[in-house]
């Protein structure tokens, strides 16, 4: 027998729960590329991103979510990157942003 239908579902929490998220992959990524931690969220990368100007791709947001253990959809998002490299020219912290894209894709291919 099915559960009762009241005409609405129960909303799922939107919270990033760092007690539940598994940070192992995030730790691996940061260990391989510690410079990613120096991101100050300025958005220069995203401002001139070829893909981000024409699709919903937001490089800064995706790698920040990955660092918080929110991996779902990150691989697919990173596939939107065209690897043109303009973000790397703009980053004031000198982060190898293309390397970040490749690293996240490599680590999270199965998420």
């Amino acid at each position: 027998m099915a559960a009762m239908n009241f005409g609405f579902g129960i909303n799922r929490p939107r919270v990033i729960d760092l007690d539940r998220n598994n940070l192992r992959k995030s730790d691996e990524i940061l260990r391989e590329m510690p410079e990613l931690q120096t991101c100050i969220g300025c958005g220069a990368c995203t401002a001139l991103c070829t893909a981000g100007n024409l699709t919903s791709f937001n490089f800064r947001r995706v790698h920040t979510l990955v660092r918080r253990g929110e991996y779902e959809g990150a691989y697919e998002e990173m596939n939107k990157c065209m690897l043109c490299g303009k973000c790397r020219l703009a980053c004031p912290r000198g982060i190898n942003t293309r390397g970040v894209v490749m690293l996240i894709k490599r680590k999270l291919g199965d998420f």
């Binding site: 919270v15 990033i16 729960d17 760092l18 969220g41 800064r60 947001r61 920040t64």
Partner: peptide, 12 residues
């Protein structure tokens, strides 16, 4: 709030 992702965040 993790303002850079626009999501609430909680942890112990």
């Amino acid at each position: 709030e993790d303002t850079l992702t626009g999501r609430p965040l909680k942890m112990s």
